[in-house]
């Protein structure tokens, strides 16, 4: 979850800030677990199509690794762009 998704908390009184921070942490944990689940589903769907054995073969494993790595890099890049847009910054063309 990207920092820029979190609104301005400075105006809140101290106790509320703590509560808001706890809520945000909760959402972040849930979000990262969901991201994990979606990532597994996507890479499994794209990489595993044969069910003649019960273990991943070398090729499937490589595919899953690359898929996960690409997805993470993608996700980070999206997060950066998203943050810029949230702040009204101009984007690279």
């Amino acid at each position: 979850m990207d920092k820029s998704m979190i609104g301005d908390l400075d105006s809140l009184p101290e106790a509320d800030k703590l509560r808001m921070a706890a809520m945000i942490e909760q959402l972040q944990v849930r979000d990262s677990l969901r991201m994990y689940n979606s990532l597994v589903e996507r890479c499994f769907t794209d990489c595993v199509d044969s069910f003649k054995r019960k273990t991943l073969d070398k090729q499937e494993e490589t595919c899953v690794r690359r898929c996960a790595e690409k997805f993470l890099k993608h996700s980070m890049r999206v997060g950066l762009r998203f943050a810029e847009l949230n702040q009204g910054a101009p984007t690279p063309d």
Partner: peptide
């Protein structure tokens, strides 16, 4: 509102992954 933004971010991420990233995964770099 935060749930909404997280959901938006997730939908955007998955949609753009499908639109932009080749899914043969010949490489681990973008």
């Amino acid at each position: 509102e935060m749930e909404y933004r997280v959901e938006m971010f997730n939908k955007l991420t998955h949609t753009c992954f499908k639109k932009c990233v080749e899914n043969k995964y010949k490489d681990s770099e973008l």
